[in-house]
Simulated assay, not measured.
Amino acid sequence: MKALFIRWTLTFAAIGVAVVWAFFPQIRGVAADWYSGNTGMPTLLDSELSNVREIKFLGRDQIITNVTVSDLRVVAAAQGSATVGLTLASSEPTALYPSLRIYLQANHQTVRTVVIGPGDYEHQATLVSEPVRVSIRLQPGETGFTASAFYGAGGA
C-alpha cells in the first residue's frame, strides 16, 4: 500500500513538472502580470510581432508615456493666423515631447490637419503638465479646431 502511494505521488509530481515545463512562458507571463499589477494592460499578439521592424531602448529619462491634450483655446487671432493654447499632461515625467496634430474645422467638419513636431513648439526639459502655445496659419473658412498628441513617425 505504501509503495502504491509513493508511485502515485511520483507520477503526479512528474506530470506537474511536465506541465510547468511545457507552459513555463505562459505561467511566467501570468505570474508577472499578477505580481506587477499590470493586468488588463495591452500586449502585443503573436500576429502583431511580425510587423515590428525596430526596437529602441530608451533611458529612464526618455520614457514614452500616455500624453493627453486638454484646455484647448485660441489665445490670439489675427488675419490669416491664430495662436492656439493647449495643455499637455503626461502620465509620468518624460524628456520626450510628442508631436501635435491640430485638426482644423470648417462647418463642423475637419478640413485640414497640421502636424507640429516637438522641435517646432517651445517646451521645458521635462513634461509633466505644461501649457503650450502653437501658431497656425489659417485658411479661409476655418473656424474651429481640436488637437491630439502622438509619438511615432514625425514624433519624438
Rank of each mutant, 00 (worst) to 15 (best):
L138Y: 05
S90Q: 02
I102S: 02
V84D: 03
N38L: 06
Q26L: 15
W8Q: 12
N107A: 15
S70D: 09
V69N: 02
T126D: 02
A106T: 12
E54N: 10
W8F: 15
S91T: 04
L96T: 03
R101E: 04
H108V: 07
L10W: 12
L58Y: 01
A76T: 11
V132P: 05
D61R: 12
Q139M: 11
I136E: 02
I136D: 03
I116Q: 03
P118R: 05
R101Q: 09
L138M: 09
V114I: 14
V69Q: 06
P93L: 03
I63L: 08
V69R: 07
A18C: 11
G29E: 13
E130M: 12
S90P: 09
Q26T: 11
L72V: 00
S91A: 12
A95C: 02
D120F: 10
S91M: 05
R137G: 11
G37K: 07
V75C: 11
T11G: 02
L138A: 09
E54M: 12
P25T: 09
M41S: 10
A32D: 09
F24W: 14
T83V: 05
R101V: 08
L44S: 06
Q79K: 10
R112L: 04
S50C: 03
L138D: 05
Q62F: 13
D61W: 05
D46M: 10
S90A: 13
T94A: 08
N66C: 13
P25F: 03
V115A: 14
V115Q: 15
Q62I: 06
A22Y: 06
G29N: 13
R7P: 00
L72F: 08
E92D: 15
Y103N: 06
E54L: 13
P131K: 01
A31W: 04
N66S: 14
R28V: 10
N66F: 06
A78R: 11
H108S: 15
Q124T: 13
V30H: 09
V20R: 00
I27C: 06
S47K: 10
M41N: 10
P140Q: 12
E54P: 02
G16C: 13
R73L: 04
R137P: 02
A3E: 14
A76I: 15
P131Q: 03
A147S: 05
V69G: 03
I102P: 00
D120L: 10
A95V: 03
Q139R: 12
G117V: 05
R137A: 12
S50P: 00
L104S: 01
F5R: 08
D61N: 14
G40W: 00
V30A: 15
V74K: 00
Q62M: 09
S47A: 15
A3F: 05
F23R: 13
A77F: 14
V75G: 15
A125V: 03
D46Q: 11
H108L: 10
P42N: 07
A22P: 01
R7L: 09
N51A: 14
R133E: 14
A18V: 14
G59M: 08
P98L: 04
L127E: 01
G29V: 15
Y121A: 03
T126V: 13
T113A: 12
R7T: 05
L49V: 06
L104D: 01
M41I: 08
P131E: 03
